[in-house]
């Protein structure tokens, strides 16, 4: 009431239509709030801190990664080098971890069966299926995310900081393709092989632990291994291995390729590579489990 009395402007002419000043103010405030909300939303989506920004950039980046190589023989050499580094370089840690995971599965399942009427040979069956369906692929790839993923992020990030990537760009090399595609191909060929090794070693670890603790005999364990075998589970293991290999490689390379700043930021990028790869591997594990089993 007060504002109406003191305000000299009683009405506003908009496109020949008289609108009271109060209605005009209410309309303006409404438009301003909506506009402000849109600006805030756009800034949020476009901010480098926004997850949407990184998801969009990550997806768009794939257009460059899968461009036709400038020279196939250079890419081939790089693929072979990556396969060697990832495969041979990670074999020992995969074998050690799988051996103990298999052994612990056997010992703990044997403990859980204590005093029940479930036949002892089920230990062999459970170790085999646990390894094939879940442990070989998931544990191996979580470990590889830590070993291979952080290494890739640090290697590519280091190249970015030492202007190696800029030097290649100036030469006309598509660095997204040359640096990332061989790593993706190498990882997707070698990691399923490492997962197969992990499964075999894990089952062997279960066998060794069962024999060592006297939980069951050789014949019982072998009988368990041969019981209720479903070949489809092996397919599931390889689907997981391929998907996890892709996740850990691409996420780690993304963190390294777009690193900014100095050594602290490089360390943070390397850590993010492992953390995000691990989280995404577990999310993908859940989704694959639902899609392939339900």
């Amino acid at each position: 009431m007060m504002s109406q009395q003191t305000c000299l402007l009683q009405s506003v002419n908009i496109n020949g239509r008289e609108v009271s000043f109060q209605s005009f103010c209410e309309l303006s405030t409404d438009i301003f709030e909506k506009y402000y909300f849109c600006i805030m939303l756009a800034e949020l989506l476009n901010s480098e801190k926004s997850v949407f920004y990184h998801v969009g950039k990550f997806v768009a980046w794939h257009k460059d990664i899968f461009k036709r190589p400038e020279n196939w023989s250079m890419y081939y050499k790089e693929i072979v080098r990556q396969m060697y580094d990832i495969g041979i370089g990670s074999l020992a840690i995969v074998v050690i971890i799988s051996l103990f995971i298999g052994a612990v599965t056997a010992v703990q399942f044997s403990y859980q069966l204590g005093g029940t009427l479930i036949p002892r040979y089920y230990i062999g069956y459970v170790v085999r299926d646990m390894e094939i369906i879940e442990l070989a692929a998931t544990i191996t790839c979580l470990v590889l995310a830590g070993k291979v993923g952080s290494n890739m992020a640090a290697e590519i990030g280091g190249m970015r900081q030492k202007e190696h990537i800029d030097a290649m760009e100036v030469m006309g090399v598509n660095t997204s393709a040359y640096l990332i595609m061989p790593k993706l191909i190498g990882a997707m060929v070698v990691i399923p092989i490492l997962v197969s090794v992990a499964a075999i070693v894990g089952i062997s670890g279960g066998y060794g632990a069962s024999m060592a603790t006297g939980a069951l005999s050789h014949a019982e364990y072998v009988k368990g291994l041969r019981s209720f075998f479903v070949p489809y589970n092996v397919l599931m293991m390889y689907v997981k291995a391929f998907v996890f290999a892709y996740i850990l490689t691409s996420v780690s390379c993304y963190q390294g390729y777009f690193v900014k700043g100095g050594s602290i930021e490089l360390g943070q990028a390397s850590t993010r590579a492992v953390v995000f790869s691990d989280i995404l591997i577990l999310v993908a594990d859940f989704i694959i489990a639902i899609v392939l089993t339900v």
Partner: peptide, 16 residues
């Protein structure tokens, strides 16, 4: 751009 870059050479500050 790739064709043009074949005609470009660059020496970086840190040599790269």
């Amino acid at each position: 751009l790739q064709k043009l870059r074949m005609d470009v050479g660059m020496l970086f500050q840190g040599n790269a």
